[in-house]
Design a protein around this nucleic acid. Sequence first.
DNA 1: ACCCCTCGCCCAAACGATTTGGCAAATCAC
DNA 2: GTGATTTGCCAAATCGTTTGGGCGAGGGGT
Lengths: 345, 345
Amino acid sequence: MSRTIRIKDVAEHAGVSVTTVSHVLNDVPGKRINAETRARVKASAAALGYVPNRVARSLRTRRSQVLALISDEIATTPFAGLMILGAQEAASKRGWLLMLVNTGLDPAYEAREIQALLQRQVDGFLYATMYHREVELPDELAGLPVILLDAVSRDPSIPSVVPDEVGGGRTAVEVLLASGHRRIAFLNNRDDIPASRGRLEGYRAALEAAGVGYHQSLVTYDASDSAGGYRAAAAVLDGTARPTALFCFNDRMALGAYQAAAERGLRIPHDLSVVGFDNQEIIADGLRPGLTTVALPHYEMGAWAVDTLIGSIDDNPQNDDRAQVVLPCPLVTRASVTAPGQTPG
Amino acid sequence: MSRTIRIKDVAEHAGVSVTTVSHVLNDVPGKRINAETRARVKASAAALGYVPNRVARSLRTRRSQVLALISDEIATTPFAGLMILGAQEAASKRGWLLMLVNTGLDPAYEAREIQALLQRQVDGFLYATMYHREVELPDELAGLPVILLDAVSRDPSIPSVVPDEVGGGRTAVEVLLASGHRRIAFLNNRDDIPASRGRLEGYRAALEAAGVGYHQSLVTYDASDSAGGYRAAAAVLDGTARPTALFCFNDRMALGAYQAAAERGLRIPHDLSVVGFDNQEIIADGLRPGLTTVALPHYEMGAWAVDTLIGSIDDNPQNDDRAQVVLPCPLVTRASVTAPGQTPG
DNA sequence: ACCCCTCGCCCAAACGATTTGGCAAATCAC
DNA sequence: GTGATTTGCCAAATCGTTTGGGCGAGGGGT
């Protein structure tokens, strides 16, 4: 077992001091080193297979090149994966690593974990929630480099990135309007969160832009799961003046809506067009016909947050892309939308 | 901004040397220190709010108390969350942290990432795949503390943890047998992976134990997604001697099977009982009626792997729980199983 | 011949802990 | 009272880097 080789070994091999090796390998600006020496050092390092000990470097520089992703609940949503993946790949691309901590909504536990991360010289924090919501930054993170991920603070000076719920809602309704639908119901989530507010706003904006009247009776509120979607769809389909299209708050509600439609003998999309939200592959791709839906930019949000966070750490302390950013929600077209049929009302 | 306080500050405050502070705070065995001094040191540390700098400690001890979770594809499966959560919580419980790296099946990239982790003195590795399969350990990890997660090596000396596919398959079929079913079809995955082999073996074992004959015509193979389940179910439901129950390779196939059943006017569970596998909440809980299914122990596998890994690092180098472990797959009962109806064949 | 630059490199002090090997003082044996 | 032990603590080395401040050699100007 050959001993792991240190900078000192490289220095001896190249016949220079460790200082010079460090200067060369790190391309320290303003240091004058002969080109020949420079080459010799690099050759020695390569020959010996030298890799710097990051722990020692961290101790000296007080920088770890490690980011922490703190989240409320990693497990409960299938989006977590994409957000984490976006963050991880962006970090890796720049030579950084990502620590992962799940705090499960317990502030005391959260404080301890932040403590543990700070002990390890973590350079920055991603504070993520697993669905878009408003949060308060924990005191322990105040003043540290941090970006909110899929969450937003009341304090506008805290940078954050969230999906463009309004734009997504508008997109969903626009595709229905473009197919000729005029009676479009919105099966909304009953929780008062940014997603339900924003998507409703987008729904109304799209209708208004198209000169279609907004009817309160076409908007229902229920739980944001399959059962809620089933109930909401049942109510709106059994009501007077049945809509020709459904915009569902999310794909799970759309799943329930499919079931309600099937029970009523309505074929999708011929008798009823449906648009979802979230692009949960398992549902959207698993349903027959495939569900046209609006995707949340989880991967992009994770990547953006890491890029921005690293930027704000590396560059001058406070560059002004500190901001509350909103990322677009693209449409994913499948087969659940077509022109309204001529079935009598 | 008060300077962060070091062990030296504690020493001065308590009127002792840093050596003594270290001895006291780490409860170094075999060191004789007066109880009164001991108390004074602890009081000083508490008063100053001292927390040790882990980076410095790591440099000296060559231990980081950090684990790395390397996975092939974090994002593509919704199980990732639970496995990662299990690992993370187990680590946190012991004061360890978890780094996350996704290598996406690219060996060169994987090697670089492992390099980067080793530079940071990571103490151990979880090498995870996002579905149960056989892997070869990358050379870079050979000889290091590592446990395979949801993966197994041909080399039995490499510890690993995977789900008990055979037992899960048996469980699924047993619940159908117990309800009185005798003609039970198995909609299997066509890929030759441990899950499809194991679940089939469990299916056969359960039938045999119940004295029910195995008929090859009742086992079909297709893609392990919703479309595959739809096709497989259609084939078996339209065949001669229609089964009274379906055991689906996974919940996505079950979703397809539900659709095929609905199209044929078969009510679940009255006309057709269905059991799935994986317990994907979105599907199993979203379907009507809820899908009785077998859960994969992702959380438990993650936790077990971390516990075992830390154990093998902390304790004497090679304690012999190094082994290829299998964890049980529990049944999750919902509403898709009942006694077979009397509908004529 | 003297002074002053610039080049090219190196010394040694951090960074903040752990750990080895001691050394005085107190206690004990006799 | 003397020598041997035990007790309680500390000094200094170490882990592997980075970095601020130098320092000698060589060249150019006068």
